[in-house]
């Protein structure tokens, strides 16, 4: 059975090497850096195939997520699975961060 990530050999559109270039934003680079850091030789908190497994768990949502949002979700789930932080800690943090970012975005 094909998972959502299993694109090899399926029909798809043309590749446009000019239009389909994109310089990663700083935010995307930050997510990239978080993933690379949890993989690195010093930490070895996760491996690439584990990250893929997490992304594939998105199921049909896999296609809806922008690339780095998929990575971010994988980092979060991996850290929960490895017990680096708990669901409660993450939720509490998200509540606090939401308040801060919403204020920032509305220009306060």
């Amino acid at each position: 059975m094909r998972g959502p990530q299993d694109y090899g050999g399926l029909p798809a559109g043309a590749v446009d090497p000019v239009k389909h270039e994109h310089v990663p934003t700083h935010w995307e680079k930050t997510v990239d850096a978080l993933m690379m850091l949890i993989f690195d030789q010093r930490r070895q908190l996760a491996r690439v195939d584990e990250s893929r497994r997490m992304q594939e768990m998105l199921g049909e949502d896999y296609h809806k997520y922008p690339y780095y949002e998929r990575w971010l979700q994988a980092v979060a789930w991996l850290m929960l699975e490895k017990g680096v932080f708990t669901q409660e800690e993450l939720e509490a943090k998200q509540t606090e961060v939401r308040g801060r970012l919403e204020a920032e975005r509305s220009g306060n």
Partner: peptide, 28 residues
């Protein structure tokens, strides 16, 4: 800016990883 929900999750994960001593801001 990324989607608000994505920015919230990224900021939360990053800050938790820093608080837990897994990574530092300088490592990033």
């Amino acid at each position: 800016l990324p989607a608000l929900e994505a920015q919230i999750l990224e900021t939360s994960v990053r800050e938790l990883l820093i608080e837990k001593g897994v990574v530092s801001a300088d490592d990033i």
